[in-house]
Amino acid sequence: MKTLNLLHYAAFRAVMLTGTVSGAAELLGRSQPAVSRLLDKLEYELGVSLFERRRGQITPTSVAHLLLDEIERAYVSLEALSSFASRLASGEGGEISLAVMPALGINFVPRLLAEFRRDWPKTKVTLNVRMSVKIEEWAAAQQIDFGLAETPFRRSGFRTSIFSNAPYIAVVPRHHPLADRSRLGPGDLREGPFISWTSFVSARHLLDQALQSSSVKVDAAYETTFSISAYEMVKQGIGIAIIDPYTAVEQLDDRVRLIPFAPQIPFNVALLRPESRAANPAADALLEVMAEKRDRLLAQLPR
């Protein structure tokens, strides 16, 4: 039985499907004598009669039907394996590992994954929400397919490109005295209470620079690490804040107003692609969905 291979079983299956040796030969693209030899070899090695041969006609035995059942189950598995291999080749059956900063990882990315899943239902996505410093570290270590993090970076080992550079925006409670303004500046923040970032957030230093260049001193009544926390405080009427544009639009609420802030504080989000990471078509497809969603979202910002 060691000399049998898939071709012997394929010949048997073809005969069972077509009902004749000639039909099997045509299906397999082989000569009738070649198919007959494959059948004879199969019967010899198995030690059973699979067909009754009378006057040029062949009739399957009960053993043949049992064998066909097993072969059909095997063919289903082989077809599933072939399909899986095809999905792997196109990225559909693979995995994506990405790391995204909280401003994009809490709402922006999770909400677009449903759209991505419609075209890539078999792809596993691992979404890591981390601070930009950690994303940079993982990209340099080739541990993710891509990352979205705020610039600048100090490490190497990855390629970068700008994903978006929309500025931070002011959020004000609807009934606040500043709510009717078309634009806010550093001096307006003194009419708070002002909700700022903690010193661990890179944007805090950008804001401090903007205030210093305008010779304005603003004492923060509250400090927080994430824009979404500051936004929630604004919705509760606690004070005013400067937050990232993604959180501002994703969390849009009738209780607040979004107002452009000048001078602009850039929210530079970069795409990090590890240099030694293998190409991943599914990751590329996800980035296309992200880019489309980004453009739709940022178009909603007041100018």
Rank of each mutant, 00 (worst) to 15 (best):
L39H: 05
S215N: 13
W197D: 03
A80W: 01
E292W: 15
L258N: 03
G47K: 01
D244T: 13
F84D: 01
E136W: 05
P193W: 04
R257A: 07
H176K: 03
L127A: 10
R255Q: 09
V15R: 02
Y222G: 06
A11I: 06
V201F: 10
V171T: 05
A262Y: 13
S83T: 00
Q209C: 01
E232K: 15
D244P: 14
A114L: 13
K293T: 12
G237L: 12
F51Q: 09
L27H: 00
S31F: 07
R277E: 01
L252Q: 09
H8Q: 06
G239P: 01
A283W: 04
A220D: 11
A166I: 08
I259M: 08
T61Q: 09
K2F: 13
L104K: 03
T3R: 15
D254H: 11
Q32I: 11
F226C: 06
I259S: 06
S77M: 02
T225K: 09
R273I: 13
V100R: 07
T59C: 15
D244S: 11
G185H: 09
V63K: 08
V109T: 00
L81V: 01
L42V: 03
S90T: 12
R183C: 12
F116V: 05
Y75V: 02
A278C: 10
A74Y: 13
A221W: 11
E292R: 15
V216E: 04
G23T: 10
L297F: 08
A210K: 02
Y44P: 02
L112A: 05
S161I: 04
V35P: 04
A89H: 03
T160N: 01
P193T: 09
V21I: 08
S132C: 15
G239C: 01
L258M: 14
Y246I: 15
I58L: 13
A283Q: 02
T151Q: 13
A166W: 14
L67Q: 02
K217M: 15
F12C: 03
L287I: 15
I238C: 04
A25T: 06
Q236F: 10
L46Q: 03
R13Y: 13
T59F: 13
K217R: 14
L271P: 05
D145I: 00
E115W: 07
G47L: 06
E72Y: 00
Y246R: 07
I243G: 03
P302M: 04
V172L: 01
S36Q: 10
L287S: 15
G157D: 00
D180R: 14
S156K: 12
H8L: 02
D208M: 14
T123R: 03
L7G: 01
L39G: 10
D69A: 14
